[in-house]
Design a protein around this nucleic acid. Structure first.
Lengths: 227, 227
DNA sequence: TATTGTGAAAGGGTTCACAGCG
DNA sequence: CGCTGTGAACCCTTTCACAATA
């Protein structure tokens, strides 16, 4: 465990950087769609909303693929980013909670297309169990451990009711999942080594409200400065 | 514009901090639900997954409400956080794109309950226009500017198809919205002063895949060290 | 004694300035 | 000349150590 980058070129990549890689990847796909064969850091930067230096720093973290004076080869960079982000593998997912949100997720073809297929759906509601949603039979949640092992699922999506979230989470962890994505406003307790990402829309909305509110106060302070 | 905190106690609050405030707020609501009258920074920290010092630093940014030796008063802190996050106002939202995702959002009572009601829904599909979803009539997107002004909407939600996202975004900005939440994998171009938050599930999934992949490589390197 | 509040130190990420190449 | 690549400076956030106080 030295300071040396490993053979993949990983000298320690931060979470924000990983997020940016996702954006670069998407932007490169668009560029390829337009027939571009190479792309400059500035171009990439403008389309993703960061600086061009940031792009170069980020890309230099995973290797050196650019041609000076020219830019980066679209195909080559796509390949490398796919490698880093793990997009050269499939990551089968299971979903718990087939409400409105779960249904929306199950009906999206995008995840499957991008290598993150939802391979099983679970619920506790007898009315829902057995029905077909997004091409899958909804199964009883008790089958979760068995199905996860059978289908070799890697990621768990928690879209059930908030009060069931922790229990579902426990079951997923016990069944061997090490990566969870939850949409519920509940802080999940998981053992070390299990990654959880919260996707709480309300947090985003509150952040937006904070920004708007701050702007308001700022303009009020123009009329009402000092103490 | 000195270094002095303004009278609200704002010495410059970072985005990550705002997100944590959201989590604290939610945790405090739970504490109040259990009848707790005061809560320590450690407790708040454990439930939100940060350190207790972080909690104290964060809270000291917006004022000093704790009683030493005791902790923070639940009600008082809730009030202050609500103030900071703008939860003492309502933030009416409009939604564009009544597909699976849009429908899921419209059917969620949570946003309305928390002060972020969706007050209008739009689409371009003639089949959808006029139907009722989540208690709202779906209207033609061309009515967006008019309705935004009429209902004094503050936040726009973009849940339409990716290729329409930029156009919808432009219309929302033109109609006066300064805060947008998009679920589409498209980088929106907006004028300065307009806040956009991307909520792309695929980015989260790719970040999870990155983590899992990294762990795999790490354990492989045990068998296969050096070059 | 338990816990908050905070100046100072440390750490991590971003930006700068410029060297290196095509 | 254009654009990448990168060590160093800078800045912001987190952590530490400890003073303050119910």
């Amino acid at each position: 465990m030295g300071t040396m980058p490993d053979r993949t070129g990983n000298p320690r990549i931060s979470q924000p950087a990983v997020r940016r890689y996702s954006h670069y990847y998407r932007t490169l796909l668009e560029a390829r769609g337009r027939g571009d064969v190479s792309v400059s850091s500035r171009e990439l930067a403008e389309r993703t909303g960061v600086t061009s230096v940031q792009v170069r720093k980020d890309l230099s973290m995973i290797g050196t693929f650019g041609k000076r004076g020219l830019g980066y080869p679209v195909d080559g960079l796509l390949y490398e980013l796919a490698q880093v982000l793990g997009l050269d593998s499939r990551w089968p997912m299971v979903l718990a909670g087939v409400g409105h949100l779960g249904t929306a997720l199950l009906n999206s073809a995008r995840f499957r297309r991008k290598g993150f297929p939802i391979v099983a759906a679970f619920d506790v509601d007898e009315e829902r169990i057995g029905t077909m949603v997004g091409g899958l039979h909804v199964q009883h949640i008790d089958l979760l451990p068995h199905v996860i092992r059978q289908l070799d699922a890697r990621i768990g999506i928690i879209a059930c009711s908030p009060h069931a979230a922790q229990e579902v989470c426990d079951q997923m962890v016990k069944a061997g999942l090490r990566a969870l994505l939850t949409f519920m406003p509940v802080n999940l307790e998981v053992p070390a080594g299990v990654r959880v990402r919260h996707h709480d829309i309300l947090v985003e909305l509150e952040a937006l409200a904070f920004g708007l509110r701050q702007e308001e106060e700022l303009s009020e302070d123009v009329d009402n400065p000092g103490a």
